[in-house]
Design a protein around this nucleic acid. Structure first.
Lengths: 311, 311
DNA sequence: TTGTAAGCGTTATCAC
DNA sequence: GTGATAACGCTTACAA
């Protein structure tokens, strides 16, 4: 193409203030450049980091991301899926609210490119990005065992959520691997909120044989448990050790600094975005599942003897 | 309308799987239902809470929100503004990255409904939602004075950012009001990052006459300053008192619990959304500025004598 | 190479 | 009321 002509056109565009209308273009081409990220809570650092990863991978590929908070409410999720369908969105990345994932199915039926993140949807042929919840939980529990704790409890999420059951499974596996008995009285299912962590910890402390360590399968659960231990004046990690799942930006700042299973949240988002871009480019490709490894971040709350970690 | 006919149509829609195409509708009506929220960092709790407020007010009004992270980079901001223009977005809520706000001007010139949040754009007739930075800073500084601290320093952001200068102004005002001298050596301009807070604190501690209290005009600045004080083994609040600006969800969990000027972030977002909806409905209405009050959250880090706050 | 026309799916309008 | 028709602004296919 003639570069001087190109320049003249450019100039004319600038002079006239011409802006191509993306809406008209989208209609004509019957495709758009918008993705929906349907997650439960943007206030949760886990999801903010993930969304950051999605965004950073989406932009170079020419896509923008609309954020949708469901608060784990299936009706809200349904509303956002409706919108994604109506707006002909190019793709959807979703952490399904409920166990059945009916709305994910709807998207699939409508041939909308979808990637599921964080939670394993049962029996769905769909691209998925997960972390290895079981292995992470196992590592955290094994660490508590090796730190010298004898009676280790587990506070996890609802039995209907895959992350909760997988983390509980990892906890059991670690106990068995070390030849420790699994006592069901020490396993508490709650929802993932901080208040539930507090409540579960309270119940555990009321036990005749109280635990001397807790693996909390969520960051807010761990925070709630910690607050309960503080309120009761139980020294952590001296009398009760604590490890959580899912790191917090400020986990090192609170006292005692919190041992956690850190998830590669940013990478999770990037992987999901790459998968989505690949599916859009090639709708017929077979669905794949990517599982990312976690990393145990050992801090003060789980180390009974020896010096604390500086921070 | 005939309710039985309505039902038949409904049924037909369901049978055929008909979904109205929002792209075509947008083209025909030449308006859309999408807002852009252009902010600096979704990882900052300030913005996440604000965005939550925007979203909660936008949805009932029929709008969805696209999030755009600029990382305070004007070029990125420009890119997102281009996109908002091309996609014919219904409106934009923006916390301008730089001092001149050229991209806000472009939106205004293109007659796109805009609301500016958090930062005061100079000489622009535009709807704006701010917090009272000066009064908030004044309250925090006055509190330090009244807690018995004598030499109070101030670590603030770049002189080009309105929030930084207004908070510094509030700091000065409090000193003057209490008949204290203002020593320019005790006022440090930095950027708002944690590392800068650390560095500024280090410099302040190296002074011949070191301060015995610090007002840090940003949450990450406060965190950096606190980390520096810890590293040097300076007891807080015993030897140096500390107050920050902008609360953190975990400010009460760190030790010492951090005194901060809490901003009504969620309300800020709601107010911005309401303003934007009003402007869309009535493009000719005169621009207004809403200023919201802050609230001083007194915790341990600024209380020299007396008991700490439980938490 | 340059130009023309059809059509994407709605909705607003106008004639019936 | 009901029904046909044009237009939103772009892309692309095809004709000249």
């Amino acid at each position: 193409m003639d570069p001087v002509l190109v320049e003249r056109v450019r100039q004319a565009m600038a002079d006239l203030g011409y802006r191509p209308n993306a809406v008209a273009r989208n209609l004509r081409r019957s495709r758009t450049t918008l993705w929906a990220a349907i997650i439960s809570d943007i206030g949760d650092p886990f999801y903010t980091a993930m969304v950051r990863g999605v965004e950073d991978a989406a932009r170079p590929a020419g896509f923008s991301v609309v954020l949708c908070n469901t608060d784990d409410d299936e009706a809200k999720e349904g509303g956002y899926v409706d919108a994604a369908l109506a707006e002909q969105m190019a793709g959807v990345i979703v952490a399904p609210a409920g166990p059945g994932a009916p709305h994910v199915r709807r998207l699939l039926d409508a041939r909308v490119p979808v990637v599921v993140v964080d939670r394993q949807p049962p029996e769905l042929r769909v691209d998925t990005v997960l972390v290895d919840n079981e292995l992470g939980a196992q590592a955290a529990t094994a660490h508590l065992i090796e730190s010298g704790y004898a009676r280790i409890a587990c506070i996890t999420g609802p039995a209907t959520v895959s992350t909760a059951t997988q983390r509980a499974a990892g906890y059991r596996a670690a106990l068995q691997e070390h030849g420790r008995p699994v006592d069901d009285a020490l396993i508490r299912h709650a929802d993932f909120r901080e208040e539930s962590g507090y409540e579960a910890m309270r119940a555990l402390l009321a036990l005749a044989e109280r635990p001397d360590a807790v693996f909390a399968a969520g960051n807010r659960l761990a925070l709630g448990a910690l607050r309960c231990l503080r309120d009761r004046g139980v020294p952590v990690p001296g009398e009760v050790g604590l490890a959580g799942f899912d790191d917090l930006p400020w986990a090192a700042l609170i006292r005692p600094a919190l041992t956690t299973v850190a998830q590669p949240t940013y990478e999770l988002g990037r992987a999901a975005a790459r998968l989505l871009a690949a599916r859009i480019a090639e709708p017929a490709r077979p669905p794949s599942t990517i599982t990312l490894a976690t990393h145990l971040e050992i801090r003060d709350s789980s180390v009974r003897f020896g010096r604390g970690v500086a921070g």
